[in-house]
C-alpha cells in the first residue's frame, strides 16, 4: 500500500485539509445513517401508537437478560474503542492493537448473543412471514397480526443494526491488521478516529433500540 509512507493524497493542499475533509465526510455519512434508521423509527412510532397492547405483548417475548447484557457489552466496546483512539493519538502503537482487539471481541460477543436470541425467536415461532405462531394467550384482546408488526419491526431494526455491527467487525479487522504493522501514528491515525465515530454511532442506535423494543411491557405495568 502506497499510503504507508505517503499519506497525503495529491488533490489536497495539506494534511490538515485532508483530515478535515475526511472528518466532515464521516459526520455527514452518520447523518445519512440517522435518516436511514429514521424511516424505521417512524414506522415504529406509528404502529406502537396504533397498537400499544400488541407491542407490549410482543415485547414480553424478548429476553431482557440478553438485552441488558448486550447493552453493557456494547457500552464497554465503546469504551475500548475510545481507548484505541486515545492510544493512537498519543502514539502507543501496541495499545492501539490491544484495544481494537478488545473492541472486536466485544462486538463478536454482542453478535453471538444476538444470534442466540434470533434462534430463540425461531424456536418460539416468532419470525413474521417465515414462521409466526407466537404464544400470546395472556393477551386475549391482542390480535396476532399486530404482534407480527412488532416482530417485523424488531427484526427490521435489530437486523439493520446487526448488519452495521457485522460491517464494523469487518472494518475493525482491517484496522487491526494495519495497526499491527504500525500504520497509525500520532500524526496520522484518521482511519482509527473515523471508525471510532462509526462504532459509537452504532452503539448509540442500540441504546435507543433496547428500551424501545425490550422494555415496553414493563412500561405497561407488568
Amino acid at each position: 500500500m502506497a499510503s504507508h509512507s505517503v499519506t497525503l493524497r495529491h488533490h489536497f493542499e495539506n494534511a490538515e485539509q485532508q483530515k478535515d475533509a475526511s472528518t466532515i465526510g464521516m459526520w455527514m455519512f452518520l447523518v445519512t445513517e440517522i435518516m436511514f434508521f429514521g424511516g424505521l423509527f417512524m414506522a415504529y412510532i406509528a404502529y406502537r401508537g396504533a397498537y400499544p397492547e400488541a407491542f407490549a405483548a410482543g415485547s414480553e417475548k424478548l429476553n431482557i437478560v440478553y438485552g441488558t447484557i448486550n447493552t453493557l457489552v456494547l457500552i464497554c466496546s465503546s469504551l475500548t474503542m475510545a481507548m484505541a483512539v486515545h492510544s493512537a493519538a498519543v502514539g502507543k502503537k501496541k495499545m492501539i492493537v490491544l484495544f481494537l482487539i478488545l473492541t472486536l471481541i466485544l462486538g463478536g460477543v454482542f453478535l453471538g448473543i444476538k444470534a442466540v436470541e434470533y434462534h430463540d425467536k425461531y424456536v418460539g415461532h416468532e419470525i413474521p412471514g417465515v414462521n409466526f405462531h407466537p404464544e400470546i394467550d395472556g393477551h386475549p384482546n391482542v390480535a396476532v397480526q399486530n404482534v407480527s408488526l412488532y416482530f417485523a419491526l424488531y427484526f427490521g431494526m435489530t437486523g439493520l443494526h446487526a448488519m452495521h455491527m457485522i460491517v464494523g467487525v469487518g472494518m475493525i479487522s482491517f484496522l487491526i491488521f494495519k495497526a499491527s504493522r504500525g500504520a497509525y501514528t500520532a500524526e496520522w491515525h484518521t482511519p482509527v478516529e473515523l471508525f471510532g465515530l462509526y462504532w459509537h454511532f452504532v452503539d448509540i442506535v442500540w441504546i435507543f433500540l433496547f428500551p424501545l423494543l425490550y422494555l415496553i411491557d414493563l412500561h405497561q405495568g407488568r
Partner: peptide, 29 residues
C-alpha cells in the same frame, strides 16, 4: 435519499416475506 432507501427496502421485505408492515390485511398502514 436514505429515507426512501429504507422505505423501498421495507417494501421489498413486505413483498418477499409478507411481514405486514404496509399490508392493511395484516394491520399495516
Amino acid at each position: 435519499t436514505p429515507v426512501v432507501a429504507v422505505t423501498l427496502l421495507l417494501a421489498a421485505l413486505e413483498r418477499g416475506l409478507h411481514i405486514g408492515i404496509f399490508d392493511p390485511a395484516l394491520g399495516g398502514d
